[in-house]
Design a protein around this nucleic acid. Structure first.
Lengths: 209, 209, 209, 209
DNA sequence: CATGAATGAGATTTCATTCAT
DNA sequence: GATGAATGAAATCTCATTCAT
């Protein structure tokens, strides 16, 4: 089935060039098929992007709910959840580069979104997953504050650390999960008496600062 | 001088439609000038975006360094700094919508950036400002961890809260400064004994959730 | 294949309007195809001109070498050669109008040529053919002088007579071959004792002047 | 008066880039004036070219008739005439590069000419001068043939030798006059018993061939 | 008259989309 | 379905020309 090949190719090409600058021709070439074939599967360019988002988000959701977090303490569940999520991100780095441009991690102006997605909301379910995780934490008193706000905070933290790690060329993004969890939960404040917080896992080439 | 008008128009149009989808024609119309006039000031479309980034970032930097933070405790300085920054953001909301798409708040793949900016790095200075703030906090022991990581965390937090506020249509973004500072410093963890953290400042129209 | 049709159309349009004044649109219309189709075959307008020159010159060269001149006296070989050449010119009158503007019959300033051809030299081979003919004549003592100069003189003579004939609307350009040969070999000088030189072959419509 | 400066600048720029590729801006810059000033003197770009042709041709004509050829033998008069002409060409090399593109030495398709000149015929008078010279030669029996044809032959010969000399970078074009006269009068034929024809004046750098 | 920024028609070129094979 | 050349609307960019200063 070429549908799969097209979406994989689109993921790579859109990530490299950006959706608008990418040409259907490029996608077809990367998928080693003819342009016409792309149009046998998708009515228009926008639909490729939408399908890409929908499928990847469906997969990610499926993976996250497949093994529901055991009823441990929230901090453990969060870490577990983040690890599984980042493992998925790792396998689809290009995808997240594309998705972050199109509103995965921050709301985009409606006009920009409508032009591409119409009224589809491909990120809605995954967003609900995040919010649900956070809401549970609030409900059981582990974290405190407005769930909506905290969800954004969590997503923002993930966004910043993940893209930072990608830019640094780190190999295993899931290793960032503890750092993300720690920052999300306890912030940056130095806590005397506590063991010194992660100064970033040392990398061979450069000494930790 | 139309240069200013062009950049203002571009800011609005790019924010609405995204850089790639925006046509020079749109920018010209919004600026109430002819297409050719845009090209009297900028050789290519990309240069408009680059100039926009460069100028706004210059202004922002100027505003941040104009009144250096007094030597208070780090938390106070952070709050002060954030407030001034958000005041600027407030006056240039559209700009930040554009800029966040092009790498202001998280690194973008080099291929995507090069295509537009060549080797210009319009966000370098403001990034240094952020890092310098964070580094000071680390140096005086107020916050702990890798400065680079913490800077990303801070920027990510700002990003999340600011765009959330914009999406919610909040009027004064600078009012978010305390929330950002609190999340950045102490994270989301519920701290028994502390007064319950802001459950989001109530807005007249809609009850806080 | 439209490549052929495009080149034929370009030949006509460039001849009529000149290369610079001609629009790709005109070429496409004349070829009865869409503008985009031209760009499926040639990356830029200049490439159409270059391809036109390259192909026609290749054909002309092929035709000239196909039937090598028999080892007669030089004057006979020259006449034979000119006749075949003019026969080709006749079938591609428009082409020669274009080509003479771009350096076929006299060197153009390098700046003008580079802008269009880069470092391609489409006339090089045909020029070599001319020079080789002349050189042979010099070698066997039939004509005397610097081969390079004489080649230019020959080409100049052809140019003058051919375009004169075209402007006069003469039907068969190959009929000019004897006149060209005579002028090239013996010049304009009146030679007492010789039969009076052709006062121009009379045309039905207008009396020779 | 700027009119003169504009025409001089136009001569240079048109020669370098060709008329169509040259921008009025370039002409203005070369003349060290503003674009608007060009339009204070000429209604449109085409008029600059036309004026350039008209004035230079007027000057050339004036120079040729200023000192009428003495009643010597035709060959001497021809040489004298050519020398004066080439001296003028030498002072306006760029001009002749432009003029040859626009029909000075070969008829151009009417549509191409009309687009630029309307119904002006800037080369008419100089053409008449040439024809008159040739006609006299025919009248007194020095040369034989159709005057119109011989005129074209003469012009073609000049064209070929002059542009060849320019391309070779020769310093004094008027030195070519004897060569042109010889070729025009006697052609290329080797004439046993005659002194060997010019094998091209030797140049320091390269040995004569 | 000189100036040069503004204008906008128009040319080149790109690329999503179609469709005959 | 797959193919890929053809299509032509649309975008970028150029530049002759205008006109307020």
């Amino acid at each position: 089935m070429f549908r799969r090949a097209i979406l994989d190719a689109a993921e790579a090409v859109f990530a490299e060039r950006g959706f608008h600058a990418a040409r259907i021709q490029d996608v077809a070439e990367r998928a080693q098929i003819a342009v016409g074939t792309v149009y046998n599967h998708f009515a228009q360019k926008e639909d490729v992007l939408l399908a890409l988002f929908t499928e990847r988000m469906r997969d990610m959701h499926a993976e996250l709910v497949a093994e529901p977090s055991p009823p441990e303490a929230f901090a453990d569940r969060l870490l577990h959840w983040l690890t599984r999520m980042l493992r998925f991100v790792d396998r689809h780095r290009s995808f997240f580069a594309v998705a972050s441009e199109h509103g995965l991690t921050a709301p985009r102006p409606p006009s920009a979104t409508e032009a591409i997605f119409g009224d589809a909301r491909p990120f809605e379910r995954i967003d609900a997953d995040f919010r649900s995780l956070v809401r549970d934490g609030v409900a059981e008193g582990a974290i405190a504050g407005d769930a909506r706000l905290l969800t954004r905070f969590l997503v923002g933290t993930i966004h910043a650390i993940v893209f930072g790690a990608v830019a640094d060329g780190r190999a295993r993004i899931e290793d960032e999960a503890p750092r993300i969890a720690a920052l999300f939960l306890r912030g940056a404040l130095a806590r005397p008496g506590e063991p010194p917080p992660a100064k970033r896992s040392p990398r061979p080439k450069r000494a930790a600062r």
